[in-house]
Each structure stands twice: as structure tokens, then as C-alpha cells.
Amino acid sequence: MTAQPPEPSPRPAPSGQFRASHDDREAVVERLRDAAAEGRIDLDELDSRLEQALTSKTHAELAALTADLPKPHSSASQPPLVLRGGLHGASRGPGRWEVPGHVIAHGGMGGVKLDFTRVECNLPEVTVEAYGEAAGVTIVLPDGWAADTSGMDPGLGGLTDKTTPDRRPGTPLIRLTGSGGMAGVVIRHPNRWERRRLERHPRQG
């Protein structure tokens, strides 16, 4: 009896033809909304792309909707920036510095100051985990940046939020968590002295 040749196994579908899941579609919807907030696409185009995203059946169809948009920065691979006030204090800024997706500040005995006024940050969101401890943490945001402080425990020292809710398109949302500790946490825009310094030394390039 002649052996029959094995039937060929089905060819795998190209990755772009894999069926899209609800999570895949939702991820594209979020990217499109971020792009509209940054001014990359107008509201009419956003509505059109959102409708296509919600009805897309494959990865290829979803990929076409974001092909002309910059890839989101991946902050997951970056370790968090950790600042410890210790006895003498610590600060980052007001010069340029690379902002990761997660910053942890421990006020310690000397305090910590985080100054974002000179940075360029393309992340949609930055988590700042602040612990006021004995000397406190101060966070300075540029005008046009906004903060969500709902996840912050004020502790004994309290939380002082002097930021405005008006978020300029293309700027990150600072999501503040942690605890005020004994000395508290302050988040604000530049004060008068800091504004004068910024005007005297405008950012170059």
C-alpha cells in the first residue's frame, strides 16, 4: 500500500492580517486622541479615524490609521529617576534634563526640588511620586502643563497645588502620587523670581 504524502499545513497569516482584539482597537483610539490633543490631526479627521478604528478587523487596518503619526515614546524601559533629599537636599533642573515616565522624590532632611521649566517632554503622562518627609518636595511646572493630584495623600504637611487646569496640547499630564509627610508637597508654576531668571536666560535652541 502506497503511503500518502502528508497534507501541507496551513500557511500562517501575515502578522498584519491577524484579527484585532478590543484592546488593540482601544490602544489605537488612545493614540488618535493624543494626536488630536497635540494638534497633529483635526477634529473631523479624528472622528473619521476613530470610526475606522472601532470597526477595524485586522492589525493591518489599525496600523494604517496611525502610520503617519510618530511612535509613542516608551518609558517602560527607562528606570525611574530617584531623588533623595538626605541631609543637604537634592534638585533636578531648571536646566534641561531627560524626563522619564516615573520620578520618585524623597524630601528627607534637606528637601527636594523638581523644576520642569526647561525640559522638552514628549511623554503623554509623567508620574511623580513625592514623599515630603521632614523637609518637603517642591515641583515647578511650566505654564500650560497640568497636574492630577487626586492620588496624593496630603499627610500631616499637606498638599499645596497652585497649578492651573489649562493644559496646552502636546504637554504631559503630571500625575502626582505619594504622601506629604511632615513637611508637605508643593506643586506650582514659576514664581516671580523664577520667571525673571527665565526671562534673563531664555532657552537656547
Rank of each mutant, 00 (worst) to 15 (best):
D47I: 01
D47W: 13
D47F: 13
D47Q: 15
R49D: 12
R49H: 09
L50K: 05
L50T: 04
E51M: 08
E51K: 12
A53L: 12
L54H: 13
T55A: 13
S56M: 04
H59S: 03
H59D: 01
H59A: 06
H59E: 04
A60K: 06
A60G: 13
A60E: 14
E61P: 04
L62C: 03
A63I: 06
A63G: 11
A63T: 10
L65K: 06
L65A: 11
T66N: 00
D68S: 14
L69A: 07
P70H: 08
K71P: 04
K71V: 13
K71T: 15
P72C: 05
S75D: 10
A76M: 02
S77I: 11
Q78N: 11
Q78L: 13
P79E: 14
P80C: 12
V82L: 02
L83Q: 09
L83P: 09
R84N: 08
G85S: 11
G86Y: 06
G86E: 13
H88F: 11
A90D: 14
A90G: 06
A90Q: 03
G93E: 10
G93N: 02
P94V: 09
P94N: 03
R96H: 11
W97F: 11
V99A: 01
V99Y: 01
P100A: 09
G101I: 07
H102D: 06
H102N: 07
V103H: 05
V103G: 04
V103Y: 03
I104Q: 08
A105W: 07
A105Y: 10
G108H: 08
G108M: 10
M109L: 15
M109K: 10
G110F: 06
G110N: 05
G111I: 09
V112F: 02
K113N: 00
L114I: 15
D115Y: 04
R118L: 02
R118S: 14
R118N: 12
R118V: 00
E120K: 02
E120Y: 02
E120T: 11
C121E: 10
N122F: 07
N122T: 12
L123K: 01
